[in-house]
């Protein structure tokens, strides 16, 4: 599978990564060579094999849905990592236009 510039542009948008026009063909070549390598999986006969998403066969692990909260120190550290805030509220670009 050879990816062209338009393919890369589409994937980059899905991945929410800004890619400059002059980088598109280099990414296209690199991604294509990786895809060419992994294409060998199509050779494997997987009839009857159940997809394995997790290797330990664990069953669902349940716990009470309870509020644990956090310490004052943790609270401050979390707020301190926010790029911008107003009081204790996170500030960012609006989702909806006026």
């Amino acid at each position: 599978m050879k990816l062209n510039k338009e393919d890369v542009q589409k994937i980059a948008l899905l991945a929410r990564i800004g890619v400059k026009d002059d980088e598109l063909s280099k990414y296209g070549d690199e991604l294509s060579s990786i895809l060419e390598y992994v294409d060998k999986l199509q050779e494997v006969d997987t009839t009857g094999a159940n997809p394995n998403f997790y290797i330990t066969n664990l069953q669902n692990s349940w716990r009470e849905d309870e509020l644990i909260g956090c310490s004052e120190a943790e609270h401050e550290l979390i707020l301190g990592n926010m790029p911008d805030k107003e009081g204790d509220l996170l500030k960012t670009m609006g989702v909806f236009k006026k």
């Binding site: 992994v38 999986l41 494997v44 094999a49 997809p51 394995n52 998403f53 290797i55």
Partner: peptide
């Protein structure tokens, strides 16, 4: 299906 799902099936084969 061709990539992710296929690779999880091959993962099961490798485990076997």
């Amino acid at each position: 299906d061709a990539y992710y799902k296929k690779s999880t099936a091959v993962r099961a084969v490798i485990k076997q």
